[in-house]
Design a protein around this nucleic acid. Structure first.
Lengths: 170, 170
DNA sequence: GGTAGATGCTTGTATCTACAACTAACAGGC
DNA sequence: GCCTGTTAGTTGTAGATACAAGCATCTACC
């Protein structure tokens, strides 16, 4: 990372001081924030942050139901990962899986009443944690800047906008 | 949930539209960026991003040596996690562990010549990936904004500034 | 100098994720 | 109908992390 003194074995554009500063801070956030969010949800709702994303997406879907592929796209999960997670949620009674009638290859995942209750119970604590660790830590203008920065990154990380609707006209 | 379950469940300040937008985008980045960085390093250097942080920190330390606790703080690892990781790195010959002479409870981790070579070999590709997915995706003023935002978050996530020296006068 | 508690690190176990292989079902061309 | 290729999802296995003990050493205080 600190190289550059070397004669140029590569045509690498190293990071300047300001870029490095931003990058190192971002790395630290990437390392710390997921664990913090996971810890709160696991402690208060016996749920992973990824579990929460799954049930939360289902709770907002029409009929509380989504096909596995659609759910995987909205949560940025690979299908194998989602399959394992949904199986565990099903074992806990939060989700039901039924074969999709229109396409017999497909599986519909539906949030049960118990699953909905779990989302409703978990949401307030989760929002509080998000405020405490993220939103309320920022100045108002930084919230807008953060949205812009994250959108710029997502145009590279997720060009098809599968996970979030980047070009949403709202 | 987190501390308010007996009081009115609706003393929650929900996120408004702009806050929610920033938050959802940030979540997507948190989910996508680590995997992207890991994939590049694993493919090109047979290393996890966390492995890279470890060897990179060691490469910048005096004598290429740090105590396990110091290394854990700089990489935001728990000590058990770091212990496992360093053991694997030692099995690959990238790191050496020796009992610390001053404090016989402590262990010094030292980057071997092979480990240094691995860092030097991995750095260009990693920096390219960081540019491609992060720095070059942003406008110049956004790079500065990102540093400011990340620092604000870290004041809550890492108040002691163990991971990054937030108040660094440089 | 002896004891209580704190510190530094390691190890074991359970859980989760990634990757690859696999089955089942659809779609199109002939 | 049949063959080829694609899509949807599951399952198996290996690798990595979290959490909880556990052991050895240091420090403070009497």
């Amino acid at each position: 990372m600190s190289g550059g003194e070397d004669a140029a074995p590569d045509d690498v554009r190293w990071l300047d001081e300001s870029e490095m500063r931003a990058w190192l801070r971002l790395v630290a956030v990437l390392e710390l924030l997921p664990g913090t969010l996971d810890a709160q949800l696991r402690r208060d709702a016996a749920m992973t942050h990824f579990d929460y994303m799954v049930v939360s997406q289902l709770s907002e879907a029409p009929g509380r139901t989504l096909r596995m592929t659609a759910l995987a796209q909205r949560t940025n999960a690979t299908l194998p990962r989602l399959s394992h997670v949904v199986r565990r949620l099903e074992e806990r009674g939060l989700v039901e899986r039924t074969p999709c009638p229109e396409d017999r290859r497909a599986t519909d995942a539906r949030l049960t009443d118990g699953g909905l209750a779990a989302v409703v119970a978990a949401a307030p604590g989760h929002v509080r944690a998000v405020r405490e660790h993220v939103i309320d830590a920022l100045e108002p203008e930084q919230v807008g800047q953060l949205a812009g920065i994250a959108e710029a990154l997502l145009r590279r990380l997720d060009p098809d906008g599968r996970m979030t609707d980047l070009y949403d006209p709202s």
